[in-house]
Design a protein around this nucleic acid. Structure first.
Lengths: 234, 234
DNA sequence: TTTATTAATAGTCATATTGACTTTTAATAA
DNA sequence: TTATTAAAAGTCAATATGACTATTAATAAA
């Protein structure tokens, strides 16, 4: 039997940065940590990678277990591998970001699980290097959202253009010209306008749109130049 | 003393996909594996992550040890974490891609180390999932190169526009219009034209250029739209 | 009933960028 | 002197952009 004798072994975890969007604000889903050390402190949703599962499997499982959520947009974005990032024992963490439509899942969340949404700029301090992970995930989301229509994952089935613009402004941390934004969005062919209007925030009302899923699937990887002139870290 | 009792521990490795560019072709740096299993088969440059180093440190160390190379462009891009990817024992691999100027380091490589360059389309079959890693790294490089001027890392100090175009064509696997390519490249402000010409491939000769390092540093993260209309996986 | 109000949406326009293509240039070799 | 050829520059119609203005559709106030 061949062995990689004497090589050191480490714990491997996954951590999920779960983004949501509600009331015009980007939100973060956090849980209270259930084990020592730092028990009861706020933490990203995470867990150790089991012997029979891939890291992707682990992320899906951990997300499902902590929130009841399934079929979520999930993307691995970075490994955190500094020797001392966990004070107890060396643990590498594979970080994923997840995008979910808050409304779609609000029932499960509130009823069965302890996860809680925080506006991203009012979230509590997190354990270990989780704050760094969140900062990195935001950068990555910003990058991706400037090039691909990934932010639709955060919106409900019906949404308005002002709502979409607000989401882009929140993610990119900048004001966007409404006319130009609408023109660009409409030209992507990703939006289908519905008859119905949302009159909750204006007299005239804003048309609801739904996503053209066919186009979304086929053109997702096209580079769309949604927010030109941005300076973006990958 | 707190412990994460009973949680499984795994080996963690790094693997480096090292890209080079020579004679108009993209190349890959490979080594013959020095341990069982699959000893003497061609493999990416890699190694286990030591107890006192981060994964980034490990990648730098492994690259240095196998090639003598230092100060190389290196970027973590994906973790490979399927349970059975190494037949002997579960090993996660953190994959990095590296970009180097072949000419700059050809001496060290040939004299002291066993690493060998292969044109990327004529490289031998690799061990484990290394072929998948290479395919993924090429995609990632294509993505990055369409948006950021990262390919200059592959070129010598002095280079010509036709040479640069050849590199872009090789990475993106497409023909590019020379006039439009030159116009776009010149408009970035990244190129400084030298007096000297390279007459090795034409009578007229092509001007040598050098990189405007100041601009390269400051504008690296700007999105440049170098190859528009591409369909790109991240 | 008319008018004021206001967000939503559409339109304007000068400028810049793009892709496809043609022309000129600079050197060498015939 | 001329033919040759890759390199470099130029042309141009079509499109995209950013900054800005005008109109619209509903409600609420007069």
């Amino acid at each position: 039997m061949i062995e990689y004798s004497s090589q050191p072994h480490y714990l491997v975890a996954v951590d999920c940065i779960v983004f949501g969007f509600e009331d015009g604000r980007l939100k973060l889903l956090l849980v209270k940590r259930g084990l020592q050390p730092e028990i009861n402190k706020w933490s990203l949703i995470g867990g150790f990678v089991g012997p029979e599962e891939s890291t992707d499997d682990a992320a899906i499982r951990v997300l499902k277990k902590n929130t009841g959520l399934d079929g979520i947009y999930l993307e691995q974005f970075k490994v955190y591998g500094k020797p001392d990032r966990d004070p107890i024992e060396r643990t590498l963490s594979v970080a994923y970001f997840a995008l979910i439509d808050i409304q779609k899942y609000s029932n499960q969340l509130n009823t069965y699980y302890h996860a809680e949404w925080f506006p991203i700029n009012e979230s509590p301090q997190l354990i270990f290097d989780h704050d760094t992970m969140v900062a990195d995930a935001r950068k990555r989301l910003r990058y991706k959202a400037a090039l691909h229509p990934v932010l639709f994952e955060l919106l409900p089935k019906k949404f308005t253009l002002p709502q979409l613009q607000l989401l882009f402004e929140e993610v990119n941390h900048m004001k966007i010209d409404t006319g130009n934004f609408n023109r660009k969005m409409n030209s992507t062919g990703l939006l289908i306008r519905l008859q119905e209007k949302d009159k909750s925030s204006s007299k005239k009302g804003a048309y609801y749109f739904k996503l053209n899923h066919k186009r979304y699937e086929s053109d997702f990887h096209l580079i769309l130049n949604l927010i030109p002139g941005l300076k973006l870290d990958l």
